[in-house]
């Protein structure tokens, strides 16, 4: 029977020797690999930088292109949102950091200036519409995706901006630190279906709520200023209007 290292006491030495040999070889290999990767990464960075700088205007102007670019960045683990301080490279290269911050400031502007009439809750498309108006750009230049990203950049400010999914593909942005309970989310969704109006009847019929639950939940919303009372509803007598779910043209 032949052993790889032979037999006898000398075999131990030989075995250890070859072990060392393997170890050295492996270090060399991985070093080469790391160097290679570094090289690749450097190449990649310069390629990305080149791409970013040559396509800067498209990235800034075309929502779909910007989205694709951001998707690409996410998939390779680069954060294009790293701000001027954290990742100056990106901000410099694209000015995208600034763009995103600027959008963030405008989102705050819209949220704060409409707070009086919507109780600090604004529907996503309405927010986009008003921000677009503020920027003086057309309807589809700023996307929901951009708004979501900008809201993320607002997080460190502790302003409590939050995006709430109310179902049916509708999102709302909350700009006051207040917990929305599950019932309120349902009511917002119901309001969305009816141009901003919620009624006890709608909650009972469409959501199967008990009348008491509907009444209590609506009273809460009323107290929080999230909806307003309407005692002259020709259809229901009394109804409630979620101002943030209504469309304001001014």
């Amino acid at each position: 029977m032949h052993r790889l290292g032979g037999v006898g006491i000398g075999a131990f030495d030989r075995q250890q020797q070859s072990k060392r040999g393997f170890a050295e070889l492996s270090t060399e290999l991985s070093q080469a690999q790391v160097e290679h990767l570094h090289l690749q990464l450097a190449q990649f960075r310069s390629a990305l930088a080149h791409f970013a700088s040559t396509n800067r205007d498209r990235i800034r102007q075309e929502p779909s292109f910007r989205h694709a670019f951001q998707q690409m960045c996410v998939s390779i683990g680069v954060d294009p949102l790293a701000g001027p301080r954290k990742g100056g490279w990106w901000a410099e290269m694209l000015n995208l950091g600034d763009w995103q911050y600027e959008l963030g400031v405008q989102i705050v502007d819209v949220c704060v200036s409409t707070r009086e009439r919507n109780g600090g809750l604004i529907e996503m498309t309405e927010l986009i519409r008003l921000v677009s108006k503020l920027r003086g750009v057309g309807g589809d230049v700023i996307t929901e995706d951009d708004v979501l990203r900008s809201i993320k950049t607002l997080k460190p400010l502790g302003a409590g901006y939050e995006v709430i999914d109310v179902g049916g593909g509708k999102k709302m942005v909350r700009s006051v630190p207040r917990e929305l309970d599950a019932d309120q989310a349902v009511m917002l969704a119901v309001a969305q279906e009816d141009g901003g109006r919620v009624t006890e009847q709608a909650l009972v019929v469409r959501r199967g709520w008990k009348q008491e639950r509907a009444r209590a939940a609506l009273d809460n919303m009323l107290r929080d200023g999230l909806c307003w009372l309407d005692e002259q509803d020709p259809e229901y007598g009394v109804s409630y209007w979620v101002l943030s779910a209504m469309r304001w043209d001014e």
Binding site: L222, L229, W248
Partner: peptide
């Protein structure tokens, strides 16, 4: 705009809304 909002014509029970 607010004049075309139905609840504008009802006195609001919540103080904050009523003030607005």
């Amino acid at each position: 705009s607010i004049h075309s909002g139905p609840p504008f014509f009802t006195q609001q029970p919540s103080p904050s809304s009523r003030k607005i």
